[in-house]
């Protein structure tokens, strides 16, 4: 899976209240989440399809609100690249089909730069450098390829979870 777009650059500890403030949780309308995505930190956030957020450590820390991952996905973000992710956000992103890569690319990008992410290889290609991030395990890539856990479940109704053999490869 290849993602191409431009960079939106942020620092460490981008928390879920910055990504989508709690007052917008009173709805199930994903367009509301998308409209207010990153409102807490960047009023000018207006990504085009495939744009990539590049951030520091602990991206998505705070609340378990899945609306944070949904907000970015429906704001057309193609991938989030961060030094590290908070674990609940990590799971939520996979589950809603928002590609993520753990990679240390922050120092090699500026806002607006063109960027390419090879999700299966865990590669982040910036204007100046190719950064090797962590590769996602196969079963998580499959969930992402299907567009999230709900779609994955529809296609694989019988498997209750990742196969053990696959897990051993992680």
């Amino acid at each position: 899976m290849l993602i191409r777009g431009n960079v939106w650059k942020y620092g460490d500890n981008i928390n879920t209240d910055l990504i989508i403030p709690g007052k917008y949780l009173r709805t199930t309308d994903v367009s509301v989440f998308a409209e207010h995505a990153m409102e807490g930190i960047d009023k000018d956030f207006s990504p085009l399809t495939g744009d990539v957020i590049v951030a520091g450590k602990n991206f998505g820390c705070g609340s378990s609100r899945e609306q944070a991952a949904l907000a970015l996905k429906h704001a057309k973000i193609g991938c989030v690249v961060a030094r590290s992710f908070a674990r609940i956000f990590f799971r939520n992103a996979i589950n809603v089909g928002l590609p993520i890569v753990e990679a240390d690319a922050l120092d090699f990008v500026d806002k607006g730069d063109e960027i390419e992410v090879d999700l299966s290889a865990g590669l982040v290609i910036t204007r100046t450098r190719v950064v090797q991030g962590s590769k996602l395990p196969k079963f998580l890539l499959e969930i992402l390829a299907d567009g999230g856990l709900v779609e994955y479940r529809k296609r694989h109704p019988r498997s209750a979870g990742p196969e053990t053999a696959d897990l051993q490869r992680v």
Binding site: G62, S63, S64, R65, E66, A69, I88, R91, N92, N95, V96, G148, L149, V150, R153
Partner: peptide
């Protein structure tokens, strides 16, 4: 809910997950 880790005070392994995980 992210603060589900609260129940660790009772000696449980308790952790927060998102909405799709809880659906699973």
């Amino acid at each position: 809910d992210s603060h589900s880790c609260t129940y660790g005070a009772l000696g449980a392994f308790a952790t927060g997950v998102g909405a799709t995980d809880i659906a699973e």
